[in-house]
């Protein structure tokens, strides 16, 4: 299988470049990660993040043939050769396919992604009806891989100001949680012209999410809630 992989070693390279590889596949190789690890056998200098190899940790998000995805669940049979592998767009490249996720996590933390409930915890758990629990479906499954946020042009142009799809999806995950009591504060927290309103429904986020989630939908619901608050 022929691949063209983005290489950059800050210690030796002035500029990034693309390196071509031709890898002999073994019968068991099914996903792109298998091939990338095979390349590491040939060329140990190739750097990437990977862990669970089953699409739940979010470590190996990268840009594959122009589209963000998780290497461990990207089928080789779905890929046109030469397979072009690049790091996630818009984030500083540390080395090869490893990007600096600081800005991504900074935005995530800024939405206070934890339950806020000042009532003393009950003896068992804070109860939630099955209907209320259903409202978290499509929100809790995010693995914070960064594919969505780094596919968003609004985030490329304003990574320090726009929260981005992943952060906003998690903001809504807690707004929608019946056990959370900080809805008003969460909505206030998204008040400036950039944090939320830089979303222009481009919908690249939905296109690339490896877990099939829709940040656009969640963001739409946040905008709707803010509108409702205005008319109250």
């Amino acid at each position: 299988m022929r691949l063209s992989i983005y290489r950059f070693n800050p210690e030796t390279d002035a500029e990034p470049y693309m390196q071509d590889y031709d890898v002999a596949l073994e019968p068991g190789d099914k996903m792109l990660l298998d091939v990338l690890l095979r390349i590491k056998d040939l060329d140990d200098t190739l750097s990437m993040r990977k862990s669970c190899r089953e699409g739940v940790c979010g470590s190996d998000a990268m840009n594959i043939n122009g589209k963000n995805g998780l290497a461990c669940i990207t089928k080789l049979t779905d890929l046109k050769e030469p397979v072009v592998v690049r790091p996630l767009p818009g984030l500083p490249v540390v080395r090869d396919l490893v990007v600096d996720m600081t800005q991504f996590f900074k935005q995530y933390h800024s939405v206070k992604p934890y339950l806020v409930n000042d009532e003393p915890p009950p003896a068992t758990e804070r109860l939630q009806s099955p209907e209320d629990r259903e409202k978290l479906d499509g929100l809790y499954e995010c693995v914070l891989c960064g594919a969505c946020t780094t596919s968003c042009p609004s985030f490329w142009w304003n990574p320090d100001k726009f929260v981005g799809p992943a952060g906003l999806l998690q903001a809504y995950r807690f707004i929608a949680d019946s056990r959370d009591q900080a809805t008003d504060e969460r909505l206030d927290n998204l008040e400036d012209p950039y944090r939320l309103y830089k979303c222009h429904n481009i919908m690249n986020c939905v296109d690339v999410c490896p877990k099939g989630l829709s940040p656009s939908k969640a963001i739409g619901k946040i905008k709707e809630l803010k509108l409702k608050r205005l008319t109250k």
């Binding site: 983005y6 950059f8 800050p10 500029e15 990034p16 840009n63 043939n65 122009g66 589209k67 072009v84 690049r86 790091p87 996630l88 767009p89 818009g90 984030l91 500083p92 490249v93 540390v94 990007v99 600096d100 596919s151 490329w156 429904n201 481009i202 919908m203 690249n204 296109d207």
Partner: peptide, 15 residues
Amino acid sequence: RPKNLDLRTVRLPVP
């Protein structure tokens, strides 16, 4: 640190 922002290498879906 460089950024991968060569828009010619990123797919443009219809939306």
